[in-house]
Design a protein around this nucleic acid. Structure first.
Lengths: 139, 139
DNA sequence: ACTTAACTGTAATAAGGTTGCAAAGTGACA
DNA sequence: TGTCACTTTGCAACCTTATTACAGTTAAGT
């Protein structure tokens, strides 16, 4: 089921289907939350080299398969792009929620970021929003 | 002028006044934008050890003199807390602006973050917001 | 099946961050 | 102003995270 989906995503992005890529993308689909480099390494039993992971994440980023979630703890976390993200132009203008209890970072795709009024002369290109607290599952 | 202010801030936080702390805090006051570890090292001519900088930033964080600005590039940036931030309880619920042109990160203290409606069961503790684009000075 | 181009693993290197301990500086007090 | 206790700094070693180069392997199209 999910296995077919993985191949689908890879092929539609003109990427060849390899074992590491299958594992990594499969893990994203399974977890359905933002993952750090470390999370992925641990989750996939280190069945490939660290370097491959770095490169794969970079490739996925460029293709718009994943996006970076803003954080305050010096750990890059990546999450699947749900909406159609074109190459180089992401649609990650949604709210991210970090749960203090379970530690997961979730994309709230349904909730769009409210508009902000900035001073004169400022031009906005992108907005990121991170909400921390207790998520629905943990309370 | 700023020199007296530096000592003032340190003393009112019950910290002894030392050369590294003076330099680091002075640099924050002078630049008035969010600074990374690297920015500070470069700006202060490495007149103290790397470790001292790590420890000083940690201390300033704990005292509420500075706060961490969320980012998407894996670089922690710190900014002065303008409002009275009590020890352990920060008031950094303001918008941060990252300029694509000059690369600076500014705290928009005047602009509060708009409220967001989250699904049932979610409890919010803190909200961070990062806007990227072109700032008033650069356009 | 063959060939080309893309991808991966290994190793070496760089950058970023942490810890323990001895030496030096700070602030309080006589 | 000198002394003392305590805090802070600098150094060295170490660990983790990230990047680059290159050779070997694998995938996809014909």
């Amino acid at each position: 089921m999910s296995e077919a989906m993985v191949e689908d995503i890879l092929r539609s992005n003109h990427l060849s289907v390899t074992t590491p890529r299958r594992r990594i993308l499969g893990w994203f689909l399974k977890k359905d939350s933002a993952l750090s480099h470390h999370d992925i390494e641990a989750g996939t039993q280190r069945s490939f080299d660290r370097v491959t992971l770095y490169r794969t994440l970079q490739t996925f980023l460029e293709k718009g398969i994943i996006h970076i979630v803003p954080s305050t703890d010096n750990v890059i976390r990546y999450a699947l792009c749900k909406e159609a993200c074109k190459e180089g132009h992401h649609h990650d203008d949604h709210v991210h929620f970090v749960c203090d209890a379970c530690g997961t970072t979730q994309c709230m795709d349904k909730i769009t970021i409210p508009a902000v009024r900035l001073p004169k002369g400022y031009r906005v290109r992108q907005i990121g929003m991170v909400v921390t607290g207790i998520c629905g599952r943990c309370r």
